[in-house]
Every structure is written in C-alpha cells, then in structure tokens.
Design a protein around this nucleic acid. Structure first.
Lengths: 225, 225
DNA sequence: CCAAAAGTGTTGAGGGTACACCCATGA
DNA sequence: TCATGGGTGTACCCTCAACACTTTTGG
C-alpha cells in the first residue's frame, strides 16, 4: 500500500475575541470539524489529500480558500510530518504549511457548524498530532516575527506604525517601546511612508505607511532568501 | 495514479581534496550515479522511495548508511520539494534531509564507480532539481553554522578549539579571529574543557574540549527547539 | 488648557571586531 | 632563542533598551 500524502495549513489571523468584544484582537486559527473516523467530531487543521497536478503550495492555498474563502497574504512551508503512527488509519505523510491572512478580511471569513476560529493559545484536543503541529507553527511565527518583517501580512494596503506595532505585540505577547519600534522598522527599510495621515483621533495624526512593493507571497524555501 | 514519495539526503563532510592532498579539507558531499532514465548516468543525491514502516528521518539515515556506510552525527529535515514537473516521470514529492558526518570517518567512506564525493561548491549538472536542492542545503548549513553550534558534528569525541574553528572557516569560507572565536564558544557553554591537552606541536599544547553531553541527533523540527 | 498618542533625542549596557600582548612548547 | 600557535586583555564601535522630551491633534 502506497504512503498517503496530505497537505494541511495552519492559518493565522488577528481577530476580535468573541467572548470579549471590546478587548484587542487575538491570534486565531480556523479549524474544521472532522466528520469521519478516525477522530470524528474532533477539530483539525484544514487540509486534505494532495492533488496530482498542483504544487504543494498551491494545494495549501486552495484548501485555505475552501475553508475560509480567503487568500493568504503570506504562505510558507512548515514541515513534513512523517512519523509511522501519526495517522491512525494507514501511513500518511503531511506536508504542512502556515499562512497569514489579513485581519479585516478574516472578520468576515466563513464560519459555520464545521468551521470555527479558535484562539491559537487555547486550543481543544485536536485530531491526530495537530496540537503539536500548531505549537510548532506558533513557535515559527513568533520566531520569524522577531527577525523578519512579515507582520504587515496581517494588515491592509496601508497602515500606521502603531497598528504594525500592535500586531507585533499581540503575536509576541509583550509590549514594545513605540519609539524604538519606529526606528527599528524605519531602519529596516521594508516600509515606505505615504503622504497621508489618519485624522480623527484625539491626538497628533499618525502617518500611513505602505509595504515595499517587492512583496513575495511565499518567502523562504529554496527560492527567495 | 498516486503521488510518489521519495526521501533524499544532502550529506556533508569535510574531506581532503584529492587533487590537492596537502591543502586543508573542503566541504564535500557524496553523490550516486543514476543507472536508469530519466537522467541515466547523471549524478544525484542519495535517496529513494520512502519506506512504509519507517519514519522519514529513519529512511534518510538508512539511505545515508547504504550510500556511505556511515551514521549521521547530525540530521535535519531540509524541505519537501513538490513542484509538479520536478520529476520527469510522473509526480514525485521528495522530502529532503541534510546531514553532517564525522570527517575522519568520511575519509574511509565507501567510494566506487557509482558513488563519489564532490566539492560542495563545484558540482556538475545533477539529475532533476538536485542542484537547487544542494544550494539550499548549503545555505541552511552556513546559516545555521553562524547562530547554532553544530560544527562539532564534523569532529570526533574531543577536539581543540582550533579544530573547531577550522570547521567554521572551511564551511563559512572566511577566516575567524582565534581570540574572539574562543570567547564566543566559551560563552555559548555548549562545550566543556577536558583535562587533556595535545602535545607534539611546536607550540603551546592546546586543550581538548568535549561537547556538552545533551546531544540531539536531529535538531530543530517540531521536537527540540 | 489638558489628555493622548505621534514622533525625536539622549544615554548607558552588552556584544562583536580588531588587535596588542603574554604563554608554552619543539626544534 | 626563535617560530608558532595557544590563550588573555582591552579599546572601540554598533545596536538595542530605556526613558525624557517635544509636537500635534480633539475635546
């Protein structure tokens, strides 16, 4: 019997917590409820069998769309999980991706009986080894957030530095000095100031920034460093 | 037709260059000559079809042993390559690992008509997308060498700091300040001094060091951080 | 004017690099 | 005693964290 090949994706977005609607958004991931054994009724990562005439990344993006009706702003391969006993019915190797989607869009994302968003840090017991996979994806996201510039993928076309900083703070779970954060971002030169500012707040209007045009959908991997 | 699943390994060792036997060792990888189409006669990474009742890492280690009669001192998953057209006969997804083996052992490693060691930076045109894979593995190795402490995997049980420094220099292709290298390693606390020194050189006998006992065969991945 | 967040300036600690210098050995 | 690499000390630079301070808006 040949080894089965599956593709799953850990999808991250910042969403308001439904139980605390006035609090700031929290890091969330969508899960799908399994309808079949093994683990019927349990929540699991969106995914499925790899398609014959699609690259693995394309399959991941397609599954992501089928689950959330969203397109990823960032997509990267996480790991290939291949332990012998990880699937409970035959041997299955899962190539897992992780993705970031825009938070404003994620608000409107499909949710239903069998698709629901969960706080990334408070998941129930998932099917298979999916808890371990999410933990690893979380570790990668937080790691990458510190040395890379991917936070913009959670935001829209333009954003203030305060918004960008909030993204970092939510993901990394600690407060950041606004002054130092500003200089860090500016020196990284990954972001360019626009002419516009946001008025309406009871304070000095912040400038809007835009991400540098050379954006790659899927970073890392053997392609772009 | 189901998607084929293969496991390949990029194996690194430091070996003396056969054409310049008096020069220091160079970063080398063993390749196997393909005997069948596609790419019959071309050199390629050791590997093969994934085994049903073996983890992917175990398969990688086994292929490594079958090719070189060696055991890896370090083994880590590199990437799952899954582009549609990368194999020229049907769809094949390759989970690729990279490994480090001890240099003294690699000297005696099997070499024959269909297995040969090449300088990692001067490879011929390989089968499939293996050139690109090796390039990525090289990038990962050099990257990891800078922030992690894996160089010892090229060496034996005990070693001098000069030997460890040479490993870094060969892999990173630049000279390192002995004084600063020493402090860097000592402050990282991954290495412990033994009582022994090496006499015989025309200079002050260097102390031997041993790696800290808590060694993991396969680092990274979802397991150990 | 006041509150609040935007944005700037300044200082000090820590890590890395360059390099001067002493130590221990074999020939 | 000299050459050679082992090993130590130190000054400088650069980055980052902390925090005081000025700016610009809405109320």
């Amino acid at each position: 019997m040949p080894i089965g090949l599956a593709v799953s994706t850990v999808i991250f977005a910042l969403r308001p917590d439904s139980s605390r609607p006035d609090e700031p958004s929290i890091l969330s991931i969508p899960l799908v409820r399994r309808t079949r054994d093994p683990f019927a009724g349990r929540w699991s990562l969106p995914g499925g069998v790899a398609d014959d005439d699609e690259s693995l990344a394309d399959t991941a993006a397609r599954k992501l769309y089928e689950t959330t009706q969203l397109a990823p702003a960032y997509l990267e391969q996480l790991y290939a999980f291949g332990d012998v006993d990880r699937a409970w019915s035959g041997r299955v190797v899962s190539v897992v991706y992780w993705a970031l989607v825009r938070s404003e869009l994620a608000d409107q994302a499909a949710e239903g009986e069998n698709v629901r968003w969960f706080a990334a840090d408070e998941l129930p017991d998932l099917a298979f080894d999916h808890n371990r996979i999410v933990e690893y994806a979380l570790w990668r996201l937080r790691n990458k957030m510190e040395y890379s510039r991917i936070a913009h993928a959670f935001l829209g076309e333009t954003f203030t530095l305060a918004e960008l900083r909030r993204v970092h703070e939510i993901v990394l779970q600690r407060t950041l000095d606004p002054a130092n954060f500003r200089r860090q971002i500016e020196s990284s030169a990954t972001v360019v100031a626009t002419d516009e500012v946001v008025s309406g707040g009871r304070h000095r209007p912040p400038r809007l920034y835009r991400y540098d045009t050379t954006i790659r959908l899927a970073d890392n991997g053997p392609l772009g460093g």
